[in-house]
Design a protein around this nucleic acid. Structure first.
Lengths: 130, 130
DNA sequence: ACACGCACTTGCATTTTGCAAGCAACACTA
DNA sequence: TAGTGTTGCTTGCAAAATGCAAGTGCGTGT
């Protein structure tokens, strides 16, 4: 994974596109290659809720394992959906946030949240756009 | 897996709810527990496109492995998103289709398809509602 | 009687996940 | 300044999911 990360980093430094092995030209399949798992969209949800620290994400009620969290954050940054930044109030802490590209996933997240609310009993709305 | 299937079947016969271990009450997390992987939504996409046979699904360009396909179809039926039926023109063939609950996933699928078309180059629309 | 297509199932190697523990860097505290 | 705590990870390992190829059972056509 280390070598993979460095490899991807070199690609970015060189301004090259990451050669993503597409399963097909289908937009659904390609989007799922980026966010199609049980954890990525939950991190994105947390970012929409204003969370930005590693510790915040790992404290979410779904209890993501820390190694998975680190892996997904790295992939989100690699794919340009999130980025690292330094908050003004705590400039020395690592922080993450959605990029503008990442924020365009809002309709996706909202449609999923709406579906869950309407079709799975026992769910409660939490994604209130702040 | 066999015992699991029979167990789930007994629950349905008894009219009981499948006790789904919720990671949290979040509608996003709960929806992802149903459709949050790389394959399930592709099968649902195919069903929206009118495909209904096992062979049709396995011939999709993403080349899902047959054991995964069987597993996902079973889970889709278990969760009430799809069902088996017998088509009029070929009554002796196994066929699957979305239930009304499954069809309510259309906004989710459409938002994902739209996002992919707008943000991933090389993708082409295929999900034309027929 | 025999081949054929369809809908899976099985076995096995590889990959991903989940869990617990560990660890380096920094801040704070005594 | 030595110790303590917090943060953001990394590591090791077992368990589960995935991917691939081959095989199986069953009805159909010839």
């Amino acid at each position: 994974m280390k070598a993979k990360k460095i490899g991807a980093l070199l690609l970015r430094v060189a301004g090259m596109k990451k050669k993503q092995h597409k399963r097909s030209p289908c937009p659904v399949a390609c989007t799922l290659d980026l966010i199609g798992d049980k954890w990525t969209l939950l991190i994105i949800r947390d970012m929409f809720l204003g969370r930005c620290y590693y510790g915040d994400f790992s404290k979410s009620p779904e209890k993501i394992a820390t190694n998975i969290l680190a892996d997904r954050l790295e992939k989100l940054v690699m794919s340009g959906l999130a980025e690292k930044w330094q908050p003004n109030d705590e400039p020395n802490r690592e922080a993450y946030r959605l990029t503008s590209k990442g924020r365009t996933l809002k309709p996706v997240l909202e449609s999923i949240a709406t579906w869950g609310l309407n079709h799975i009993e026992g769910t409660e709305a939490r994604l209130k756009p702040k």
